[in-house]
């Protein structure tokens, strides 16, 4: 299992896009840092704002870069691994060896989860470092709910929790995109379908709005102002996507 993960991980980094995305992403995060520190205010939505200080900087940074992760980098990595390798025939080379499909899918899923975690952690590290290095500190911070005040440690954990929730949303996206990649016969179609799913989910039910408006949901949920179920739809996307994809992968005639 570990060898399979390692081989998939190496294949992932062999695609120049992975390293390139990482570099571009760091540049974007850096530019967003400059942009936010110029702004002096962080916006939760169109109405509520909070002055930017060291303690809450990382949270607003994630909001700025979340669209790049959800719409560009995330789908690119996932689709290349789950659909690109299959449709280009590259996966046959792996399947020459007697490996189990369940393990192969699990390896891909876990590698992609690790990769997404890496991107999230990079954002978190840069956000915290930049915040404490260049922004004024404050004794207490408020987030979207103005009645709850947090000290420096509380604010750090608040940000950390928000990053964790956003990462859960990315995992739900990973499972759903994996399913889309498995059902559709091409890379471009999968990409288009993921975007249609994320946008279309808004029209279906507000409970699925987290797919596109992830940070909006996280802001509200952590402040106790989110009026829809959060974990249930998220876990449905995550679990169902994973289980159904796994089922399909095991039934496929791979080597043809």
């Amino acid at each position: 299992m570990f060898a399979m993960m390692l081989s998939d991980w190496e294949r992932m980094w062999k695609r120049k896009k992975t390293l390139f995305s990482m570099l571009i992403f760091v540049v974007i995060v850096g530019l967003d840092c400059l942009f936010l520190s110029m702004q002096k205010l962080g916006a939760f939505d169109n109405v509520s704002t909070a002055p930017l200080v060291s303690e809450n900087f990382a949270l607003f940074l994630l909001k700025e870069v979340s669209f790049f992760l959800v719409l560009i980098i995330g789908p690119m990595l996932i689709i290349d691994s789950m659909n690109g390798e299959y449709t280009s025939g590259q996966l046959r080379m792996v399947l020459i060896r007697p490996v189990s499909f369940a393990q192969l899918f699990l390896a891909k899923w876990m590698n992609l989860a690790a990769m997404l975690l890496l991107f999230t952690l990079v954002t978190f590290a840069i956000g915290e470092a930049f915040g404490y290095a260049f922004l004024p500190g404050a004794d207490t911070v408020v987030f979207l709910n103005p009645e709850q005040q947090y000290g420096p440690a509380g604010a750090f954990f608040y940000c950390f929790q928000s990053y964790g929730l956003f990462y859960l949303i990315l995992l739900a996206q990973l499972s759903l995109t994996g399913l889309i990649c498995t059902l559709l016969p091409g890379v471009v179609l999968s990409y288009l379908w993921w975007i249609a799913t994320a946008v279309g989910a808004l029209y279906v039910s507000d409970s699925f709005g987290f797919l596109l408006m992830g940070m909006d949901t996280v802001f509200k949920w952590t402040a106790g102002m989110y009026h829809h179920p959060f974990y249930l739809p998220l876990l449905i996307c995550l679990g169902m996507g994973f289980a159904v994809t796994m089922g399909i992968w095991q039934r496929r005639g791979w080597t043809k």
Binding site: K17, L71, I72, M76, I79, Y191
Partner: peptide, 15 residues
């Protein structure tokens, strides 16, 4: 060189 790359670049330009 890859279709995901082209779509990603295009969407990045849009964003």
């Amino acid at each position: 060189r890859t279709t995901t790359g082209a779509v990603g670049l295009g969407l990045g330009f849009l964003l």
